[in-house]
Design a protein around this nucleic acid. Sequence first.
DNA 1: TTGAAAGCGTTACCAA
DNA 2: TTGGTAACGCTTTCAA
Lengths: 342, 342
Amino acid sequence: MVTMSDVAKAAGVSRATASYALRGDPRIIPKTAERVLKVAKELQYTTNLSAKSLRSGKSGIIGVAIFELDKPYPSEMAAALSKEASHNDFQAIIQQTANSKESEISILQKVTSQLCDGTIFSPGKVTSEEIQELSGGKPIVLLDDTARKLSFDTVFTPCEDGAYAAVKHLLACGCKDILIIGANPLALTDASKYRSVSARRLAGCKKAFSEEAMEFPESNIIDTPDWSTLAARSTIHDIVSQGRHFDGLFCMTDSMGLGALRGLKDLGISVPNEVQVIGFDGINEGEFSVPSLTTIEVDMADLAKKAIQLLTARIDDPTTPDTAVSATANFRLVQRESTKIR
Amino acid sequence: MVTMSDVAKAAGVSRATASYALRGDPRIIPKTAERVLKVAKELQYTTNLSAKSLRSGKSGIIGVAIFELDKPYPSEMAAALSKEASHNDFQAIIQQTANSKESEISILQKVTSQLCDGTIFSPGKVTSEEIQELSGGKPIVLLDDTARKLSFDTVFTPCEDGAYAAVKHLLACGCKDILIIGANPLALTDASKYRSVSARRLAGCKKAFSEEAMEFPESNIIDTPDWSTLAARSTIHDIVSQGRHFDGLFCMTDSMGLGALRGLKDLGISVPNEVQVIGFDGINEGEFSVPSLTTIEVDMADLAKKAIQLLTARIDDPTTPDTAVSATANFRLVQRESTKIR
DNA sequence: TTGAAAGCGTTACCAA
DNA sequence: TTGGTAACGCTTTCAA
């Protein structure tokens, strides 16, 4: 392995000078700097990340910790974050928290707080207080923090506005009997769940209904074991076999929307003629399903941009005040075949 | 930040003793070790990754470099690899190479070879020789290496056998006029492409046809700009509008299979009645499409297991001979609605 | 069984 | 403008 000492020796300068030259410090005169750079290139020198990080506390790496990397939405998010990090001269490393608190903790304290200049974290089971402790003071940006009081910079998905637009759209399509799939009705009243993604989306729904002076009974909110495609499909089977009637479905995620579409197809119920369906997220697959899925498409590039911007601001200036800042990603309603304006 | 010195001081031992005790070295008597561990826990000590890695050359981290993290197959692969790494007491960090040689090189030389004990790499544009140079001698396992001569341990997807099974299945379903979507016909003859995934899958197809004494004209191989769902959909539109006839489709990936299904639907062609479709990969989405997609499902857990096993073997024993070893993942044919045995 | 001390490859301070 | 040198936090001989 070729070290900086090797480069310095070969260029006939001290290690200090080589270090400065390599990092383009203006105090080294161009002639010297040029020579060092040339030698470094010839020797194929690369700076040792561990040493750099140990000494300076900076690595140029941003950590992204995400739940369930094998699902479309989180993986598209990871990809967008990774791309945006590159644009800002950072390298993103992505880690899967895999729905285990233990793993979240381990990632946070072993890798993230040690190696990364900052972390973008999608919190699962770990609390804000724990994150605070484990982060070792390194900047953190949360994705959809559900805490009552924000203690970290956070980027939110446009839950309220998106859900509002979704329900409004279903109403505009003539739906009279709308079911919300994948939310817990308790989220509306249970204070501890108040800021959850579910609750925020339900709040948006509520607003849309009340504007139309329509009822929004709790029984129209159908909970599911999880947000998987499979769960959505079975849920549709269940509620139809229970004789439940409905003509519009707002699914909490596109993955669930796809499952609902499939469940309806299993039962021979026509979309959008008998039932209209809208999802949330804007995953790529929704464009190609049969029928294609109308959705609230989160502007992922915008989300990534806002998250990285918040994070790099703290990395570049660690003296930024402690008050947590938040941003909300843009979205747009993408109408496809699963709904029809009448 | 609490360092090992702090722990040593608080426990009344030297830094060396603390280091040994923390790592469970048997030379420290239980009583002392226990005390050190207790103090470390109280102080919430965590070992500094950079320092550990700088000094010992080991980090406990495995790098996974993957192309296009926002597509189902690669992201499922990353998730499986990450999970399997955890089972072997390694933490996986995933990086997106994003289809750029520059980015592949940067990841390899800046992060991977510096920090990771080993890397699982899905090579895109970078050559074996370059990987050799950039890896800094750290163990590497390739995913579907396309090089003529293997220079690294490699895990292959079961291209030949899988494609063979796919075509055999289409034949068993009564297809007389099968098109292969997404492969370059030149791959069969161009030596430089000989080991490409395309070529290996085509070889499997060829074998299946020849066994049935059927023709396999090059014109039945339809190339596409890429392996995206969108490309598959447009390709179907194109070939049908050209008046091309066919009753069976083998798509090089499930993502393309989904696109083909959608393209056929656009044209009012019924699957599986008029055309039968089979994909390759076994992505989750294929189970829920309408119609659901018959596929060659790669056993991802098996692939991950083999890759991690190959890698950890080299990490644990760096003296392993230079000869590259390879393994091939298992697969199974999953029949769904897009094909029908008559 | 434990401790002292020498680095690992950088960076950053201070002096020249 | 450059060079000497002391850290950064850890592991690992070598002695005690």
